[in-house]
Design a protein around this nucleic acid. Structure first.
Lengths: 244, 244
DNA sequence: CGACCTATTGAGCATCTTCAACATTCGTGG
DNA sequence: CCACGAATGTTGAAGATGCTCAATAGGTCG
């Protein structure tokens, strides 16, 4: 049961850092305070003071920042195994909102429990900080995409990155994955209009590269897509932290 | 002398966290390994393994990521008092390059020295981590700009943000600041062509908002510029970490 | 059924890019 | 001290990319 929930997180960390039985145990104990959240209602509100962080067990979530003019920019999507709100546990306010895209299950992690876990199993602390740095690298890569890639390239890159991340937790492979995002989500993430997202998706489909339909992404020509996006997964694959 | 070098860094941290004499002393000791770097030659290379980090004492620096097609995207600019390469000290590779824009002075910080300083003065560790989180918040804000703001708004926002950051270390105020950036730097940071940067700057000048000329930024209508950019410096001004 | 959310497509338009030419500044060597 | 070249800044014109507005269709859920 607990094993089931902690699966994705442990699997992700374990892909880069060998975790001992003790560490896995501490990890699973962090998952006890399990909760369910409905789609659309924010977990963390922009500007709010927040003590708790979460480990996402199932479902998808997005972090976003709302603009005064009403538009919003999605910073990143989070998938099972991802840590939510780590920064707002270290600091004490959140500069962005966190919203479930579908109904999700997440384990609430109290600030004190996390700090205790870190104190007792330093390797775990290093692993989590490594994961946080990887998240930051993804944000940077996203920024590069918005600044220097065309709409087609951005879309291809995003679909590939999500695929690579999902593959790490056993929820996808090079043929495709299930994806609950709407075209509006993609638009808000990629800095495009929803209309243009639709056209881009059509073109990618007509060129036989990817199909995004009915909640499923199907890679029809994986190498072709990688070439179009100039997708270099180095920033995801980085070796784990030095664990002397 | 050491006081002089550590000035900007201590001043920045001190603006948010009250530092004791002991902490200031530890801080100044971190600045001993002072070095000079010429403009244009990278301090840290993209993809390189790097042990050392730096505290920038004078001059400007940019972090950037090069694309396979030759274009580059500047992630952020660093100014005196900023920490360089903190992530590459925690992990062990850098996913981006760091390049001096002018000749700079920086204090090299060895991994071990930093960890020692953190161990002896935890408040200092918290303060530095707070600074790192603030940097991340700036990257996020930059991402939002690229995704959801027009060229004019982006430019206005960037010039205002730099002004606010410089003011924190006593190098600028609401009337303006000295700025060594070329229009190419701005283009690479804002995701625009250099040509368009030139037009945008002209328009901002003609509308009496800012003047960017001869290495100097002059705010001609600060409130007007803030309104245009919808500049909300909350993400820079955040209160310091909880230092219980 | 009706309301609402999501997806789709067309037409016209704004923003920003590219290409090209030219001006200006600045450092360097003659 | 001047001449030259390189880097930076400036401007015009043409074109591409992506946006807005608008209309329509399918799907889901109460």
């Amino acid at each position: 049961m607990a094993i089931n929930i902690s699966d994705a997180f442990a699997r992700k960390l374990g892909a880069f850092v060998a975790l001992s039985a003790t560490e896995l145990d501490v990890l699973s104990r962090l998952h006890r305070r399990r909760r369910t959240f409905v789609a659309g209602r924010d977990l963390v509100h922009q500007g709010q003071s927040e003590q708790a962080a979460y480990i996402l067990a199932s479902g998808w979530v997005c972090s976003y920042k709302s603009q005064p003019d009403g538009s919003r920019q999605i910073i990143d999507f989070q998938i099972p195994g991802d840590f939510l709100g780590l920064r707002s546990i270290l600091l004490h306010t959140s500069d962005h909102g966190i919203q479930p895209i579908v109904e999700i299950e997440a384990a609430e992690v109290r600030k004190q429990d996390l700090l205790d876990a870190f104190a007792h199993t330093p390797r775990l602390a290093t692993a989590v900080l490594w994961a946080a740095s990887r998240d930051e690298a993804m944000v940077v890569e996203h920024l590069v995409g918005l600044g220097r890639r065309s709409a087609m390239e951005r879309m291809a890159h995003m679909l590939l990155e999500l695929g690579a991340r999902l593959a790490l937790v056993g929820m996808g492979n090079k043929t495709g994955y299930d994806c609950p995002l709407t075209q509006y989500h993609l638009a808000d993430a990629l800095g495009l209009s929803a209309v243009h997202v639709n056209r881009v998706l059509r073109q990618l489909r007509e060129e036989g590269l990817v199909t995004f339909q009915g909640g499923h992404v199907a890679f029809n020509d994986y190498p072709g897509l990688v070439a179009l996006a100039e997708f270099d997964p180095t920033y995801l694959d980085q070796v784990g932290p030095l664990l002397d």
